[in-house]
Structures are given as structure tokens and as C-alpha cells.
Design a protein around this nucleic acid. Structure first.
Lengths: 198, 198
DNA sequence: TATTTTATATGATTTAAGTCATAAAATGCA
DNA sequence: TGCATTTTATGACTTAAATCATATAAAATA
């Protein structure tokens, strides 16, 4: 998103997180702008019964957790490193200052937020009113478009576990497994030693 | 959102829609920026079986349908007038020009998108993994916060039909009706001649 | 005002996804 | 290398919400 050199000019600090580390927690006041230098971060919630819902997974060069920064609300979800990750962090004040001085960044932020809102709109409609196979396939197609899944001979390698697909679509693992099997039978995707290709 | 006088400077045109009129359709190329002068607009999708999902309801002074404008994608949902409505519309080019010349508007857009993303995040987690009563109550509480529901002696009047609540939460009317009844029994809300108060 | 349409309401039944149990690969790690 | 954990897999069963049917009240409209 934002050039690291620019972030460093605004007192950017490099922070390292181990796989599983909590970066921020639902309900906390947002204080920083976070951008991924390397690694992978998910934002998630847990419902009353402890079931996880993954809001999104973020990769290299992406930022996350800005919306509450702009609207002075607490975080609606947790951020957790899903691999060892290196982040660059600047304070809210510095971030707003950076924005003010760099109008092109504003447009980049607008585009990024728009993209995420688009994803949420599509998935909201899917999750609320489509059958499991439809939901899984839509998530896969959207992820191929947006994330950098590798294209191999068999097709795009879907780099998600069945559990992650479940947590992103609001389905249980078993349901995802059965949906994927059924989609394979219909020829919509391939399973090659347990990996999913589309 | 944006002052009407300013929109008029950028060739803003007033358009009138009757209750039920389609403003734009899922799958179409976005060409305009839309802002509500008076009336009420919903954005919705229909699933394969024709079940409606309401992405959001928008009121006076709010804009809608900008995200695809920024990211050059087709509309992910329809926009439909739910009351007779007066909108002001400017072309995409003029809108981007307006943004470039008014950096304070950029921040307003960022805040607006952030607010909507926040709503989607909260509702996504709710819809995917909470029971009907929880979903209904969260929608109601969120809507009280965000929309201008009137505070009366009995509490905030929830200005939604049961059907609308169902379409916003992905539940069927009957389920919403039963959830509301049950929430009333628990004292979480009031029903006074069929109207819901919280 | 009468009539149609929309919204709320409730009971009975169905069904799809969740839950539970169990197992075997695959992967991580000590 | 061996052991523990995670991931994928499958069958049996349960259950919560959807579906269906029907009714009545309220609102819209002719």
C-alpha cells in the first residue's frame, strides 16, 4: 500500500510477530496503522459458542485495521499473525498527518477500502442466502481474483485449509469437506492429494 | 455527504424515482455518483431461488454505490428506491475531478467507506455464526446507532418491517417474527401494537 | 367505503447443515 | 526418527431454521 520509506519518515517502527500472536484485540481502541512487510495476518471474531469467523486474510504489502481508526470506534475483530510476520506500524496521528500531506495516498486508501467493501458485499449476500457449495465456490473464485494463488497445470492452487474456508464462509469443516467433494464430482474443481485446484 | 451546491458545480443533475424504481442493476458498469436529497434507497441482491438480501438501506444526504466506481468493477448489487426519492447524480469523471480538487471530501469519503465496512464486518460475523435472536438484536442496536430512529417513551422505534429485518440478516420472516416475540418475552424489546421498540 | 394488498402471527412438517464419533493421512516438532 | 498435532475424510444422528399452510389485522388504494 504505502511505500515503506515514506512510512519510515513518519516514525514507522518494524514489529515482529510469531505465528499465532495477537496483534490487536476486538474491543480495543485503535492507535496505529499496520502494514505487512512479510507474513500473513487474519482478522477474526469468535461467537458466543467459541466458533471462529475470519473477516479476511491479509498478505504482504497490505494494510489492515484502518476503518476504526478513521471513525473513532473500537476494533470490531481481532488481528492475529497466521505465520511469523514482520509489520511496519505508525501512530494514528502520524498516519493522518501522512494522509494530509500525500493526497495520492488518500485515493489509494479509498480504493483499498472500496475493494474490501466489495468483497464484504459479495460474501454477505452469499453467506446469508446461498447453499454451501455456492458459498465455497464463490469464496474460491473471489480469492483467486484477489489473492496471489499460484497457477499450476491442474489450475489455481487454493491455498486455504478446509477449516479456513469454513471460517471464511460460516460453514463447519465437515460441510466444507462434503461441499468440496461434491464440487469435484460435478467437475467444478479438482482435488489432487487433498489439495484443491480450480 | 457532499454539499449539493458543490455537486451542482460539477454538473449535478436532479433525478426523481418512484417507490420501487430500479436506480441501477447488479452487473452493470458504474457511471455515476449518487447522493440522496430526499427519500430512501436500498441495495439488494437476489439469490438463485429469488430470496432477497438487503445490503443496506440509505437515507437523506447519504451516498451509495461508490465502491465499484473506484475499483472499476460492475455493481455487486441493485439499488432500488423504497420510497419516492430525489437524488442528485454526477458522472464518474466529474466526481473524480471533484475529489481531486477537494481533499477534505476525500477524507469524508474515507470515513463513510470505513463506517460501511465496519457495519459489514459486524454483520458478517453475526450472520455467519450467531443465532437468530442475536442477529436480530445486533441489527437493531446497530441501526439505532447509525440510523435516525426516533426515541419515544417506549424506547427507540425500530422503523423496519419484519421482512426487512429478515432480508438484512438473512433470516425468513417467520423466524424474525418468532425471534422478536421471544426477545420481547425476555424483556430485550417491546412490541406495542405490532411496532418494535428498543 | 369497500376491496385489495401488505404485514404480522402461529402451528405442523421437512430438511439441510450441524453435531458427534471415529479414523487415517499428512505435517510439525522434540 | 518417533510422537503429537493438524487436516482431511466419512457415516449416523440431531436439531434449528426453513417451509408450508392458514388466519387475522392493518394499510393502501380504487
Amino acid at each position: 500500500m504505502i511505500a515503506i520509506t515514506l512510512l519510515e519518515k513518519y516514525n514507522g517502527i518494524i514489529k515482529n510477530y510469531k505465528n499465532g500472536d495477537l496483534i490487536f484485540e476486538e474491543g480495543n481502541q485503535p492507535l496505529y496503522y499496520y502494514q505487512i512487510i512479510s507474513g500473513e495476518v487474519k482478522m477474526n471474531n469468535y461467537n458466543d459458542e467459541g466458533k471462529e469467523f475470519i473477516q479476511g486474510i491479509f498478505y504482504k504489502n497490505q494494510c489492515f485495521g484502518e476503518p476504526p481508526l478513521f471513525i473513532d470506534q473500537v476494533y470490531p475483530a481481532n488481528a492475529v499473525a497466521v505465520t511469523d510476520s514482520e509489520l511496519i506500524v505508525i501512530t494514528k496521528d502520524k498516519f493522518l498527518e501522512l494522509l494530509k500531506n500525500n493526497s495520492d495516498i488518500s485515493l489509494a486508501i479509498i480504493k483499498n477500502l472500496s475493494q474490501r467493501l466489495y468483497y464484504k458485499s459479495v460474501m454477505a449476500a452469499e453467506i446469508s442466502s446461498q447453499d454451501p457449495e455456492h458459498r465455497v465456490l464463490r469464496l474460491i473464485d473471489y480469492s483467486i481474483e484477489q489473492l496471489n494463488f499460484k497457477k499450476e497445470e491442474a489450475g489455481f492452487l487454493i491455498n486455504f485449509t478446509r477449516q479456513q474456508i469454513g471460517d471464511l464462509t460460516g460453514l463447519r469443516v465437515e460441510t466444507v469437506i462434503r461441499a468440496i467433494k461434491s464440487l469435484e464430482k460435478k467437475g467444478d474443481l479438482k482435488i489432487i492429494n487433498r489439495k484443491v485446484y480450480r
